[in-house]
Design a protein around this nucleic acid. Sequence first.
RNA 1: GUGGUCGUAGCUCAGCUGGUAGAGCACUCGGUUGUGGUCCGAGAUGUCGCGGGUUCGAGCCCCGUCGAUCACCCCA
Length: 425
Amino acid sequence: MAKVERTQPLQAPKGVSEYFPDRSRTFEHVRSSLITAAKNSGYELIELPVFEDTELFKRGVGESTDVVSKEMYTFEDRGGRSITLRPEGTAGVMRSVIEHNLDRGQLPVKVWYSGAFFRAERPQAGRYRQFYQVGIEAIGLNDPEIDVEVIAVAERAFRSLGLKNYHLEITSLGDRESRARYTTDLRKYIATLDLDEESVKRAEINPLRLFDDKREAIKSAMSSAPILMEYLTAESAAHFERVKELLTALGIAFTVNNRMVRGLDYYTGTAFEFVHHDLGAQSGIGGGGRYDGLMAELGGGDLSGIGFGIGVDRCVLACEAEGIALPETLALDLFIVPITPASKTLSVTLAEQLRDRGVAVDMAYGDRSLKGGMKAADKSLARFSLVLGDDELASDSALLKNMRTGESRSIKISTLADDAENIFE
RNA sequence: GUGGUCGUAGCUCAGCUGGUAGAGCACUCGGUUGUGGUCCGAGAUGUCGCGGGUUCGAGCCCCGUCGAUCACCCCA
């Protein structure tokens, strides 16, 4: 081959996660397991744009949040509109539900989504600028039973992956009334502390944030702060009691974390988080909660809802950290190895005929040796292999080899496609 | 966004106090004419992340830059 002048190779943009073979198999398995859990509880697909009107996130997620104030990919399109790459899924779902009147029928509306999300953060293992989530939303009912169903879907999803080393934390963020009274008292308490400038700033935006600080000094300073749980209205408290009761009835283990902080403004009432133990700083593999007032904020009816987002990237890391093996799936039924020019034509046409009948077929291309072709067959994880040469062409018969057992049986080539159903079942 | 660590073949890494690169795995071919997974043999493969600088000479030193990673922050 002639020497080609080398040009500077391109790199993927900073902080994006990419999945290619063999690791993409794990990604695919994780994502489909998460989706299956949602479908099994009656959730239906909602497929939405990855970019939205910037206003949606400002109003929905909240301008005071870090996500909106400093992590969004926002740009102007050619029509001068301000567009933002979705940093999360719930706001878009609400917008679509309102826009298409999905809430006019039977309630709750139950949907699932899956796709890429974008946040311009400093990347780290488990924290990417383009990341993948599977999420569900149940909209229109404020029943503790739904809360528990949503949590159970996530729990079942993790269990179906074989994950063990994680736990569930829940809390109640209370309704608007509870929260207002609480925040006032919490601010008063924080004002008595001797804090650094940055912490004061953070507390001004959201006083709850200080509960999340990793530094020992702040932790101990906050240890005697007032607790939101004690400010719940009777109604909120009863709702939360019922959620705990049902989780216990279902045998779903949880701990109540009354210092839990959620980063998005819209959460109210039940909130939860699944934390994995082997992931370092980015340990939340999924989380969510109820959001009263979000729909009304976005111009829809005043309906409540609850949902979660599960991080696909982090679940992949969690599976790897726990050493979970992928289920043995043989993707291919047959791998054909042609060893002469004439048999190549036959191989190509035979492969197409079989594929038309739903048999998964691949074959060796190029001029490979028999040994090389068989090696490729082995690597392909196909159930059967078939070597085709001039002898086979002449006699219309070939040896179909079971790659698992090593046994071969003679088959007629000309009728292989028609008998495919029996042979490959 | 702040601070620390790291960046050598597809992968995991070695490379002594500076003298222009190696191992294992993977890959390709072969081990008497056409059957893989074990074993044996042979072979191919690198702008030493990128750009400057110091030096007779840099993968090794200095500066910058890009990227990854760890913690903070944030959260999926």
